[in-house]
Design a protein around this nucleic acid. Sequence first.
RNA 1: GCCGACAUAGCUCAGUUGGUAGAGCAGCGGUUUUGUAAACCGCGGGUCGUGGGUUCGAGUCCCUCUGUCGGCUCCA
Length: 606
Amino acid sequence: MQQNDSIHAMRHSLAHIMAAAITRLWPEAKLGVGPVVEHGFYYDIDLGHQTISTENFKRIEKEMRKIIARNEAFEYFELPIDEALAWATTAKQPYKEQLLNDLKREGTTSMSGLDSEQVGVATENPSKVEKVSFYRNGDFVDLCRGPHVESTGKVGAFKLLRIAGAYWRGNENNPQMQRLYGVGFATDEELQAHLHQLEEAKKRDHRKLGKELDLFTFSDLVGQGLPLFTPRGTIVRDLLGALSQGLQAAHGYQRVTIPHITKTDLYKKSGHYDKYPERFNVSSVESTDEFMMKPMNCPHHAQLYASRPRSYKELPIRYMENTMVYRDEKAGELHGLSRVRAATQDDGHVFCTVEQIEDEFTSIMTMIRQLYDVFGMQLRARLSFRDNSDTYLGEPELWDKAQQTIEAVAQKLGLDYFIAEGEAAFYGPKIDILVTDALGREWQCATQQLDFVQPMRFGLTYTSQDGSEQQPVMIHKALLGSFERFMAVYIEHTEGRLPFWLAPEQVRILTINDSVESYVDKITTILSKTLLMEPVKYNELRFTTDMRNESLGKKIREAVALKIPMQLIIGPKDVVAKQVSVRMHNKEVTVPLDELSGFIVKESTM
RNA sequence: GCCGACAUAGCUCAGUUGGUAGAGCAGCGGUUUUGUAAACCGCGGGUCGUGGGUUCGAGUCCCUCUGUCGGCUCCA
């Protein structure tokens, strides 16, 4: 704890030193805020029409080092609020003035609960704070809550990393400032280790690996956020889909199929139309109706349910479909496969009675756990419940009962969970699953949501045991979530080294010379009869043969670059010994020809 | 969408103060028949992302558009 406090003070002090250095280099700089963030700090600066680029970092760092070398003390002092305001005016620091106005009026600079018009506005009312604190080092003075290290010499190791635009107080109507980011650590070793870690993360970037492993690509002509999957990438997608659907089939889900464009009327009736400004409209369909690309599948599945009268005896009805949805995400939000405009969901909808919710949630949670066990990923559940606001539709008693059920399921299954009040959708509570990747980052993948509203809007019913008409509850669920996002997460998690069952090319035969051709025929006959049943059923072995007139070294190099998990090296010695030399990521063994098939099946599950 | 940076051969990149493009790998042809991460020789390949402008002359300078990357959540 002690150490956390001291590193925090170091980083905060570095923010001040950076601001001091910039003020020295650009005396007209207007300062915003300069907080501590994970691994470092930033400061928001307004230089008017001038721009700072990363080329200026050396100059700024040099100036910072001078301040550090002078080992100036950080002196604390307080000023009455009105004197502080006078200081801001004299120092020509309008952003500081706004912060002081907020302090005077609200007693805090936190904007939560404030109308945006109020932020930064002066008040004539009595101040909520009497005095505000300042820190001074050398001739640089800044409004600051602290804490700081004793003097500028005690800030550890730092490096300026990047620069970005950021709106003053996060509001896009405000002036945009330049945000300079730096990292800071107690020792140079820690700094170097951090920079090294950043390099490692870069190596795992799924956009880079996707290209190297020939999994997917993008095209300017097709458009932003619209990935194209190569044959290899498509194999991975299909297998992920097969795994998800295999699990679901075992839990009573049936596949359905719907078209990808729809009359907008469908989404007007479901209530999604107004909630989805990022829809893709399709204007040239020859009809008086307006059409759009589907941003979600639930209304369609609801129409399948509504296609004929339903009895309580049929429930639960469970539909599943791996299908693409289209959303016009903001251009700046797009990022490789993790945020796209065409995303494939392993979507599913359950129509059931209120009494059946518990069993269905248990079943869905069980599938999610089975799925992420296969990937070896840890998960955490966020139970998104309603708060006391009136934005939620449906009977409050139903909500309470459902939320109790959901938490009971989480407890029963021993989930690592937490409750997020106010995070529920307007139509019902949900469980979102967060998975942690190898770099410790958390991603939202699987989700399951209760929906009280769509059955109502679409007038879905079933006939109950006593002959009365009842409304079913709808459950939305996705196990992988979006295939695209999951692939991004999983590629980075595994560094592109996909497990054997999922590798697009599982085995490559590498020949040493062309005297082994007929022996290779025997091997391919064995491989083509080898079938994997776990974790996806009837998974035929995917293999190729490299008989090119190239050196073995080169063939190995290429196979390794594609992260093909198993290479069979075949030369004259192997022919004589009736064996195969098997080369894998971490080991190399020789296997008798008649044991090859069994060996591969065994290795595939490890 | 907004701010900043970037866009040169299939890939990774070089291209000096403006004087109409280079390397390695990949590809193709030949030689080589090879035992654990790149054999050798040769050849072809680029409207320098798009459109416009400045200039005698633009990959290089200016503008537009498209795309890519980093941010736009962290609150004295």
